[in-house]
């Protein structure tokens, strides 16, 4: 068809084809030749794979930096990455349910489909929180029936995933199994140490300083890690934007409890949080949605960044 278009098409058709070809070449990143190709859905998962795989592995991340992991644009170039992948790491617990399934179905890659050796659902190895104890109903908001999926805020979850990733990489690249296992253990040790160090810093603060308000019900694992207490959320229910009546209740709760820190991720609207911070004298902490994978940030540095942001606000 291409050749027929080139032969029979008029000048405009040929120019359009040439522009299309050039744009495609310019717009697409080149593949990492000779390496194990791993696709991770989220930046923090990508950073974990990169640290365990080292130079044996080429990693691509589907979500853009700062993008809401619930609503990643399912752009067709992501199908291309999945088509060429040897392994896929997803967060799981339906966090990617709104965008990943059609990409995976179109990938034409049996090696990374659910249940295949090259597929890892990170949520399968963590200790879950917020698992619904009764009927799941959308009137409760956007509830995840399997539990809260935002566990990449917690070093312990990351360390468990690191071990599972070493296993994944060993399955798709058995010749590097020893290296992956050693790096996995090393990373696990680093993450647990960083986690303990930050938790100890928070534990030294007075209990009143450890109360926070969150925008979305996504920081449960952060609380478990740092020993924080959430007094309320700015969203009345997960995924439902705040209305004036609920904001008034949040304001009242903050005044009653004395909570002086508001936490939210970078992709949520800030105007309500800023208003509440102004009215109560609280500090607003905007947390990154994941590691700075594109800038080469390590997960240990990412953990330290989150801890520093939160502890600085709690300490003021």
């Amino acid at each position: 068809m291409w050749m027929q278009l080139i032969k029979t098409g008029n000048t405009a058709t040929r120019v359009a084809l040439a522009i299309g070809f050039a744009a495609g070449v310019l717009a697409s990143p080149g593949p990492a030749a000779g390496k194990v190709r791993v696709v991770a859905t989220l930046p923090t998962l990508g950073s974990l794979v990169r640290e365990i795989g080292g130079d044996r592995v080429g990693v691509e991340v589907l979500a853009a930096p700062g993008e809401d992991p619930h609503f990643v644009d399912p752009r067709p170039n992501l199908i291309l990455s999945l088509n060429r992948a040897d392994a896929l790491v997803i967060n799981g617990l339906e966090l990617e349910a709104g965008w990943l399934p059609p990409l995976l179905q179109s990938a034409r890659n049996g090696g990374i489909q659910v249940g295949s050796p090259g597929y890892l659902d990170a949520s399968s190895v963590i200790s879950r929180l917020d698992v619904p104890g009764g009927p799941v109903d959308r009137a409760q908001g956007d509830i995840h029936p399997g539990g809260n999926p935002h566990f990449l805020f917690e070093p312990e979850s990351m360390s468990r995933i690191a071990t599972a990733m070493a296993g994944l990489l060993s399955r798709v690249d058995p010749s590097g199994a020893t290296i992956y296992a050693a790096r996995g253990r090393e990373l696990e040790t680093r993450l647990n140490a960083a986690g303990r160090e930050a938790a100890a810093r928070v534990a030294a603060l007075p209990p009143a300083n450890r109360q926070v308000v969150a925008y979305h019900k996504s920081l449960t694992y952060l609380y478990r890690w740092l020993g924080l207490t959430e007094v309320t959320t700015i969203e009345p229910r997960p995924g439902i934007p705040p209305d004036p009546g609920h904001v008034a209740k949040v304001l009242s709760t903050m005044k009653t409890t004395g909570a002086k820190v508001i936490l939210q991720e970078v992709f949520y609207p800030r105007s309500t949080s800023e208003t509440l911070a102004r009215l109560t004298g609280a500090r607003l902490v905007v947390l990154p949605s994941g590691s700075e994978f594109d800038k080469g940030e390590s997960v240990s540095d990412h953990v330290k960044e989150i801890a520093d942001l939160v502890i600085r606000a709690l300490s003021e």
Binding site: V125, I126, S127, R128, L129, D130, V131, P132, G133, G134, P135, V136, P145, G147, R160
Partner: peptide, 9 residues
């Protein structure tokens, strides 16, 4: 759905 607040791994 499981009735526990904190699920096993």
């Amino acid at each position: 759905a499981p009735q526990t607040a904190v699920s096993p791994t």
